[in-house]
C-alpha cells in the first residue's frame, strides 16, 4: 500500500542524487555514525546515572539538563543524515524488516525520552528509586533496539 510512496521517495531529487553519487552515501553514513556517538554519549550519561552507575555523585536533574542539548544535537544530526540515506534506497528499505523495526521503535523511543524520561529525570535528585531505574533501563533498551535494527538494515 505504501510502496508507491517509497518509490516516489527514491525518485526525489535528493534520493536520486545520493544514490547516483559515489561519495554522498558514505559521507552521510559516516556523519550518521558521528551523530550516533553524540546521541549515545548523551543518553548513557543520564541512563547510567538513573541506574545508579556512572556519575553517581551528581544530581540526575542537573546531568539531564546538561546532556539535553547534546542529546538533541545527536538526534538532529542522525535525522538530517538519515533522511537522505533513506531516500537514496527507499525501495530497499520498504522490503527490509530491520528498517520497519527501526521505524516502529524510533517514535516509541522518542516519545519515551521526551515525555517520560525527561519528566522523571527532572524530578530525580540524589538516588533514583525503582522508577528511575526502570526508566533508565527502558531508555537504554529502546535506543539499543533502534541502533541495532538500524545497523542490521545493511545486512538484511
Amino acid at each position: 500500500m505504501l510502496e508507491p510512496f517509497f518509490r516516489w521517495c527514491e525518485s526525489t531529487l535528493i534520493g536520486s542524487a545520493v544514490a547516483e553519487s559515489v561519495w554522498a552515501f558514505p559521507i552521510l553514513a559516516a556523519l550518521h555514525l558521528l551523530g550516533l556517538c553524540v546521541l549515545g554519549g548523551a543518553l548513557l550519561v543520564v541512563d547510567l546515572r538513573l541506574l545508579g552507575a556512572g556519575l553517581t555523585g551528581q544530581p540526575v536533574a542537573r546531568l539531564a539538563r546538561s546532556a539535553r542539548r547534546w542529546l538533541i544535537t545527536g538526534l538532529l544530526t542522525m535525522v538530517a543524515t538519515g533522511i537522505p540515506l533513506f531516500l537514496s534506497e527507499a525501495i530497499k528499505a520498504y522490503y527490509n524488516t530491520s528498517f520497519w523495526v527501526k521505524m516502529i521503535t524510533l517514535p516509541v523511543a522518542l516519545l519515551f525520552t521526551f515525555a517520560v524520561r525527561e519528566r522523571v529525570a527532572r524530578e530525580e535528585g540524589g538516588d533514583p528509586g525503582v522508577r528511575g531505574k526502570v526508566v533508565g533501563a527502558v531508555s537504554l533498551a529502546l535506543w539499543f533496539t533502534v541502533a541495532a535494527a538500524g545497523r542490521w538494515i545493511g545486512f538484511s
Binding site: L33, L36, C37, V38, L39, G40, G41, A42, L43, L44, F144, A147, A148, R151
Partner: peptide, 8 residues
C-alpha cells in the same frame, strides 16, 4: 554499536 558507549 559499541561506538555509542566508547566514543559517546
Amino acid at each position: 554499536l559499541a561506538l555509542g558507549l566508547f566514543v559517546g
